[in-house]
């Protein structure tokens, strides 16, 4: 009886603590969402107030109109295409490369791995121009190809992540399959890939968001306003040389959160489900 009430009490404390921390965590986001329903003065001068004094829905209409006759409908569609294709491509290519680097033995494997890590160590700022010149000389600018093509060729961040997850898959499984007559190709499809599910899911969530949020790439490789992504459009609100329409900007920032959040919600359930049987028990 006593221990039961303690358990219930513990559970309540657990939930309350998490909710409080959670509130602190999302406070800035709530602030942004509430800003999407305020006008400039309310945002700048009454910033601590989370509840908008008047619900200014016209921010959304004004923001959605976009710039120079191109509306956010187009910007969202463009972002979806780029982020969607890139994400799918990253998952497939990175899984293949990770399998090669972590499970197979051949000459030059270590060198390839070192080169891959090295590509992460140079700041993008100095690679921007040479990369642009290269794609331009291939006649691929302006187009979305420079934005998606690299993802078909593996992304170091995710290759390495998948490698680390593969390190958690017992080698005995491969060996057993091999004895059963499964080729090295088959092992990838039937053993590794299915067991890589958690890593694949985190890749989808993170990569989709990164591409969605990427500003520099679209800025450099796209040119017509009709091809702009959401990230470019959001920056257009905040030209430093003139006054900013914060309400409209916050409204569109809020909308731009929704797709990435939905992707997260959808895939996150595959990370949580089943943990009850395999994870820690409270």
């Amino acid at each position: 009886m006593n221990s039961k009430t303690r358990k219930v009490l513990n559970r309540y404390i657990y939930h309350v603590l998490i909710l409080i921390t959670g509130f602190i965590m999302v406070y800035p986001v709530l602030w942004m969402i509430s800003g999407s329903l305020k006008n400039n003065t309310e945002i700048l001068n009454d910033s601590l107030n989370l509840i908008p004094p008047h619900l200014r829905w016209d921010n959304f209409a004004r923001g959605w109109k976009g710039f120079g006759g191109t509306s956010f409908r187009t910007f969202f569609a463009n972002s979806f295409i780029i982020a969607g294709i890139s994400t799918a491509a990253t998952v497939l290519s990175s899984a293949c490369i990770a399998y090669s680097f972590s499970r197979l033995k051949y000459l030059g494997r270590k060198l390839l791995f070192t080169l891959m890590i090295m590509t992460l160590l140079l700041p993008g700022q100095v690679l921007l121009i040479p990369q642009y010149v290269l794609y331009n000389s291939l006649g691929l600018v302006p187009s979305i190809i420079p934005l998606i093509l690299p993802h078909f060729l593996g992304q170091a961040f995710f290759i390495y992540q998948m490698m680390q997850f593969m390190a958690g898959i017992p080698r005995e499984l491969d060996e057993a399959a091999f004895v059963d007559g499964c080729s090295k190709y088959g092992i990838f499809s039937y053993i590794i890939l299915p067991l890589l599910k958690p890593a694949v899911i985190t890749t989808i969530i993170i990569q989709f968001y990164w591409k969605w949020d990427d500003f520099q790439g679209p800025l450099v490789y796209l040119s017509k306003p009709q091809s702009y992504t959401v990230s470019i459009a959001l920056k257009l609100f905040a030209d430093s040389s003139s006054a900013t329409d914060y309400g409209a900007m916050f409204a569109m920032s809020t909308l731009s959160l929704i797709p990435v959040f939905l992707i997260f919600l959808f895939f996150n359930q595959y990370l949580t489900e089943g943990i009850s049987t395999s994870g820690l028990k409270g």
Binding site: L128, Y132, L219
Partner: peptide, 23 residues
């Protein structure tokens, strides 16, 4: 007339890439 417009920071980044490729 085909037009493009940016925020001022983005504009100059873009301009520099175009300069580098004579476009």
């Amino acid at each position: 007339i085909e037009y493009e417009f940016y925020d001022s920071d983005g504009y100059f980044t873009k301009l520099n890439t175009l300069v580098a490729s004579d476009k």
